[in-house]
Amino acid sequence: MKGNKPRIKLYIACSLDGFIARENGSIDWLTEYEKNPGTDYGYSEFYSSIGTVLMGRKTYEQVLGFGDWPYGEKKAYVFTRQEELLRREKNVEFISGDIGEFARQLKENTEEDIWLVGGSQLIKVFLEEDLVQDLIVFFVPVILGSGIPLFDQIQKEIGLKLINTERYESGLVRVEYEIEIHITK
Rank of each mutant, 00 (worst) to 15 (best):
I95T: 05
V125A: 12
D152N: 15
S96A: 10
H182Y: 13
E166Y: 08
L64C: 07
S96R: 14
D40F: 10
L172K: 05
D98C: 13
L85K: 15
M1W: 01
F151D: 03
G119Q: 07
G38W: 04
R22Q: 14
Y41G: 15
T165V: 09
P141M: 04
G72Q: 10
Q133K: 14
T165D: 01
G56F: 02
R81A: 09
S15A: 09
M55N: 01
F126E: 03
S26F: 00
Y71I: 01
I123V: 15
N164T: 12
M1A: 13
F126I: 03
L122C: 09
A21Y: 11
Y41I: 11
N24I: 06
P149F: 07
E45W: 01
V63Y: 05
F126K: 07
D68E: 13
I123T: 14
D40L: 10
L150K: 05
L106H: 04
K5F: 09
I158G: 02
I163R: 14
I12L: 14
N109C: 08
N91Y: 04
F19H: 13
G147P: 06
G159Q: 04
R104E: 06
M55A: 11
L131I: 02
E178A: 15
K2V: 11
K75D: 00
T31M: 07
D98R: 12
V142T: 13
L172A: 11
K156H: 00
F138D: 07
Q133W: 00
P141G: 09
E129V: 07
G72D: 03
G145T: 10
L127D: 00
E84C: 11
E128I: 11
C14W: 00
R104W: 02
I163M: 10
K124L: 10
V142L: 06
D68W: 02
R167Y: 03
G145N: 06
R104I: 09
K9Y: 00
V92I: 11
G3E: 01
D98I: 14
I95Y: 05
R57L: 05
G118L: 11
G65S: 12
L172Q: 00
L162S: 08
S49L: 02
I183K: 12
K75G: 00
F126V: 06
K9G: 06
V142C: 09
E83L: 14
A103T: 14
P37T: 04
S96F: 13
E128G: 06
L160I: 04
S96H: 12
I99C: 09
T184K: 15
I183P: 00
K161W: 00
E111G: 04
E178C: 08
Y77Q: 04
L30H: 03
E23F: 05
A76T: 15
